[in-house]
Design a binder for these strands. Structure first.
Lengths: 201, 201
DNA sequence: CCCCGCGCATGACATCTGTCATGGGGAACT
DNA sequence: AGTTCCCCATGACAGATGTCATGCGCGGGG
């Protein structure tokens, strides 16, 4: 019997997935959580065999949870399920020790199969997501450029970005300009959106 | 027995919800669809009592489907389920004849209850979403301002917006300026994000 | 050891944006 | 008929932004 922890902030989905996984004879949902922090706490208590974690949750995101989990409970396989996957997430997730990465568009038997794969020490990444990640390539942005671009995402003016990043406005403009060049965009907002889509920020 | 059509592009979720609804004695999922167009086609064929539709789908969005459905099959109650609800959606949905509107964070028995409510001609809107919608208020934007702001969402420069909207750049800037004023933002990108969050665009 | 890339900064310049005044035309309502 | 609101446009100006050159210090790789 594979003991599963299910973390997803959408009760409906979580309940439904639990119902679905419980239909399998060798799977058992032993715990559920609605937030990242809750997932961690519960995981420490019940020590599941596999943790199925939603990428987007109110507090900690799925990757952070996975990271903490793989440090805390090395025996617990972690997998991420997400409605909307960007390439960068996949990369970060893999780096965090996640062994399964699926979009929610997969069918339920795939989910069950992957749970088993992860439990037995294997890996599984959705082919479509993998292809996307490969085509997105590595980020050409320097860490600082990425930081600044991220702050630019919300549409803040340069001065505010500068304040938030503790940089001089001029420096911010340099980074931004460089990022705009690298992304082929025509302004920072477009560049930020592009980088976001690629998963670079 | 209430005959249900389930439309959601996420197979996993759809399957799981179907499993969940089928647990209820008086509910029966008679059809499923993964896209808006498919949902319409299937609905015409099976004539369900209630259609449970996801808001975000690849082609037509849930509200459009609901609209078409209420014209095609007036006896079929429609309800929208969504992971992330913006106020504007709720308003549009209600106008399209939707009688149930729920976030996916609700529990499964609420879902079942609402299916029954909608089937018996009642209405149900998630209280939290309703509150949000009320607090968001009506859009202060004129139709043109909304159009232009929407084009600005992607971060395009003014000239491109002007071309895409068939307006002179000067006019675009006027609309943008006015929209920025109305939203209290400090530039159009922020204004666009704000309007988006409010569901105005 | 030296070079390169990065982080950080400044200054200067051209362009883009945001704002405001102004005006004509049309629809709607009083 | 008058008022008001919206659509569309132009022109002008200030401030924000994008670009480029230049400089300094630092650390890693050749």
């Amino acid at each position: 019997m594979i003991r599963i922890l299910l973390a997803d902030d959408e009760h409906l989905i979580r309940g439904a997935m639990a119902a679905l996984l419980s239909l399998e004879d060798d799977l058992e949902v032993v715990a559920q959580a609605a937030t990242g922090a809750e997932a961690l706490a519960v995981a420490r208590a019940v020590r599941p065999d596999v943790a199925v974690i939603d990428l987007q949750m109110p507090d900690l995101d799925g990757v952070s949870v996975a990271q903490a989990l793989s440090a805390d409970l090395p025996t617990c396989g972690t997998m991420i399920v997400t409605s909307y996957g960007r390439p960068g997430h996949l990369k970060r997730a893999l780096a965090a020790g996640v062994r399964g990465f699926l979009p929610k568009t997969v069918s339920s038997d795939v989910l069950a199969t992957v749970v088993r794969t992860v439990h037995s020490g294997g890996r599984y990444v959705d082919p479509a997501l993998a292809a996307e990640a490969i085509s997105a390539g590595d980020s050409p942005l320097t860490p600082r450029e990425a930081d600044v671009l991220e702050l630019a995402l919300e549409g803040a003016p340069v001065d505010e970005i500068a304040r938030r990043a503790s940089l001089s406005p001029g420096t911010v403009r340099n980074y931004l300009s460089s990022a705009v060049g690298k992304t082929g965009a025509s302004n920072r907002h477009e560049a930020a959106r592009f980088a976001r889509a690629k998963g670079w920020i």
